[in-house]
Simulated assay, not measured.
Amino acid sequence: MQEPTFLILASLADGPKHGYGITQEVAELSEGTVTLRAGTLYGALDRLVEQGLITVDRQEVVDGRLRRYYQLTDVGAGRLAERARRLRKHAEAAESRLRTRPNAAFGLTATAFGASA
């Protein structure tokens, strides 16, 4: 699962959102490092609907334009949870190895990860 897909699913974990809401939530979750353009977002949303990871919750017309709200399915929530577990496990393994690294490069010391020096 690519990072944008993970973030889209994570943005929907707390409830349905429309496209613009998803892009805002993804930017917030990623601390501004992931920006979704409309074409990328809606292509990803269509793919995620086809895969059964999200579904259209409802549609409404706002200012003459159709606004579609998406929600996470149970299958999508399961995939998101599994991916989050895997990412956490990989991050913990990387941090563990970094703690054993000599303290010279990049200021990465044991204290950078909450361990006492």
Rank of each mutant, 00 (worst) to 15 (best):
T100V: 05
D74N: 09
G19V: 05
V49R: 03
E25V: 05
Y20C: 15
R47M: 12
L7Y: 00
F106G: 02
V26S: 01
H90Q: 15
T55L: 14
Y20K: 13
L87T: 14
L9I: 00
Y42E: 08
T33Q: 11
T40F: 15
Y42N: 12
Y69P: 00
R65V: 11
S30K: 03
A115V: 15
G76V: 00
E82L: 15
D63H: 09
L41G: 03
L41N: 00
T5Q: 03
Y42L: 12
E25Q: 10
L12P: 00
T33F: 14
A105S: 06
D14N: 13
M1V: 03
I54R: 00
R37A: 11
G64T: 12
L48F: 04
G39M: 12
Q24C: 05
D46C: 13
T100A: 08
L45Q: 05
K17I: 08
R79M: 11
Q51A: 07
Y42T: 02
Y42R: 05
E50Y: 05
L80C: 02
E92M: 07
A84K: 01
E3D: 14
L72K: 02
I8Y: 01
R99E: 05
Y69Q: 02
E31L: 15
Q71E: 13
Q59K: 08
L12H: 06
L45E: 07
I8R: 03
T33I: 09
G76T: 00
A115W: 05
Y70I: 02
E3T: 02
R65D: 08
L87R: 11
G21K: 00
T33W: 13
V75Q: 15
L48V: 02
F113T: 09
F6W: 10
A81Y: 10
R68V: 09
Q51W: 08
E50S: 06
A84V: 07
L36D: 00
K17N: 04
V62L: 15
I22P: 07
L45M: 08
Q24E: 11
L87C: 11
L48E: 03
Q24W: 10
A77I: 11
T111P: 04
P102M: 05
Y70P: 00
E92A: 06
L7D: 01
A110V: 07
D74P: 02
A10P: 14
V75L: 11
K89R: 15
F113C: 05
V49I: 06
E95M: 06
V56H: 10
A93T: 04
H18L: 13
N103Y: 08
Q2I: 15
R86E: 13
R101I: 12
Q59L: 12
I8F: 04
T111C: 03
P4H: 03
Q71T: 14
T73G: 04
V49C: 08
D14K: 13
L9N: 01
L36Q: 04
R97Q: 06
D57W: 00
A44H: 08
G78W: 03
R67V: 11
L108F: 04
K17T: 05
D63F: 12
T109F: 02
A117V: 09
R47A: 12
R79P: 04
S96R: 10
L9R: 01
Q2T: 14
A81N: 12
D14M: 11
V34W: 07
T100Q: 07
T40I: 15
T55R: 09
